[in-house]
Structures are given as structure tokens and as C-alpha cells.
Amino acid sequence: MTFIKELTKGLIKDNPIFVLVLGLCPTLAVTTSVINALGMGSAATFVLLCSNIIISMIKGITPSKIRIPVYIVVIASFVTIVDMVMAAYLPDLHKSLGLFIPLIVVNCIILGRAEAFASKNNVIMSIADAIGMGLGFTLSLTLIATFREILGAGTWLGMRVTPMSYDPMLIAILAPGAFITLGFLMALMNMIKEKK
């Protein structure tokens, strides 16, 4: 029962972006297209899952004074693995995500979950938490990217979804567009929560 609860809380109730407002740097930077959002989301989810598992396993043997450096070492290792594997087998995605792959290290969601959840719960719960949070993160990124890509480029996942006469609203895929879209979606989220 609690397993299901931990799994689904990341989607709406504790959504990492719209409710916890964590990890905004990659959220704003890579959501220019849906494919980037999915790539970033899955990379971060993978790192989150692995680091949550390891950290909940080593929580007994880590002295609390050095827990933060140890978490960072664990997270950074997985990020580097993702970076190298992606460069080798998914070069196009690696090119478009660029600098933001190494920056997963400092994504607050991952360290935040390690500190707030994995270091206090067992492996099974930590897996549920990681998957839930990762899915919430990925879905939120995809939602933002959907608006930005359709408005700013007239495409969705690279496919043309608007009539050819549509003149893309460039601001949507520029930096200000990220803030405006995020703001409107957050307002929408709050409205839904208030109605409940």
C-alpha cells in the first residue's frame, strides 16, 4: 500500500517541479523540444534510481558527518556513466543536451531525494520513490516542452503538427519562453489543487 503511495506521489502531490520546485535549471534550459525533455528526464530518472538504491544500501555504513560528500560521489559517478554511455551510443541526444548532462550532478531533485528519502528508508521504498519522482520530473519536462515546441517550432517530437502557414512564436523556445510557460503551468497546477 505504502509502496503504491510512494510511487504515485511524485506525479501530482509532490511533483518535483510544480510543487517542490526543485531542479529548475535543467527544466528551464532543456525543454526546448520534447525529445530533449524525454532524454533529460530519462537520464535524470536513471541517475536518481541508481543513487537512491546505493544510498539506501550504504546508509548504515556512512557516518552522518560525511554523508553529503559520499552522496555526491555516488551521484557524480552515475552521471559520468550516463554521460559516457550516451556519448557513445546516443550521440545526437548527447549533443543537444550538451552541458546539462554533467549538470545532473547538481540537480537538486537527486541530492534532495537522497537526503530526504533514501537515507531514511529501505531499498524497496527508495526504488518506489525514485521511480515516482523520476516519472514526475520527466512528465513535467515533457509537458513544458510540448507547449514550447508546438508554439515555438510548430512541431511535436519533430513532427509538424501545425499548418505550414503557422509562423512559429520564437520566444517560446528562447529563455523567456521557459519562464513564462513554467509560470502559467504552475498557476494552473495551483488552481487544480485549490479546487480539490
Partner: peptide, 10 residues
């Protein structure tokens, strides 16, 4: 001891 543990992790 702390340093050693961190070293092992690294």
C-alpha cells in the same frame, strides 16, 4: 577514519 571511509567510496 572519516577521511578513510570517503577515500574508499571514491
Amino acid at each position: 577514519k572519516l577521511g578513510f571511509i570517503l577515500f574508499v567510496f571514491c
